[in-house]
């Protein structure tokens, strides 16, 4: 039959329960008349029904959570770190000034404070250098996370 092509799509619609009543009527009328389409209907139905039994593995929540990180959490982390570092810096500078001004202190605590201040600056410089290196090699740096 020459207009079989047109009905092939409708046959799939019929199997999927997606046709309007008018379309159902049309395609049923055609199936009554056309043995070829009837055969095709049976074959398609048989092999593709198995698809309905398939399902995907559900993804883990931890996988899903990685898809997008709000920039808020990054800002919060950054500002927390800045506040702590800033506080330390203020205390260190204060200690240094006090130490220079007040010559009456015995030498041992003065050496202790000086060591802490030097240590702090060494660590600070190291962290800054490390951040700079990872930033350069980060392929996603233009993408906000």
């Amino acid at each position: 039959m020459k207009d079989c092509e047109k009905y092939k799509a409708l046959i799939v619609g019929l199997m999927d329960n997606e046709l309007t009543p008018k379309e159902i009527h049309e395609v049923n009328a055609h199936l009554m008349r056309c043995g070829q389409c009837r055969e095709e209907y049976e074959q398609l139905k048989e092999t593709t029904e198995s698809l309905n039994t398939m399902s995907f593995n559900e993804p883990q929540d931890e996988v899903l959570r990685k898809f997008w990180k709000s920039p808020y959490s990054r800002w919060a982390r950054l500002s927390g770190m800045l506040l702590i570092a800033g506080g330390w810096l203020v205390l260190m500078v204060y200690g240094l000034i006090e130490m220079i001004r007040d010559n009456s202190e015995p030498p041992l605590p003065r050496i202790g404070i000086a060591a802490m201040i030097i240590g702090f600056f060494v660590l600070l410089i190291m962290v800054i250098r490390e951040r700079a290196v990872t930033y350069q090699s980060d392929p996603y740096k233009e993408i906000e996370r």
Binding site: K8, A9, V12, E18
Partner: peptide, 20 residues
């Protein structure tokens, strides 16, 4: 919608052939 149906027809047919 018509293209959805006809693409599904061809896809189902291709599936059947590959499956067989």
């Amino acid at each position: 919608r018509g293209t959805v149906m006809s693409r599904l027809y061809h896809a189902r047919k291709a599936f059947r052939e590959a499956y067989e």
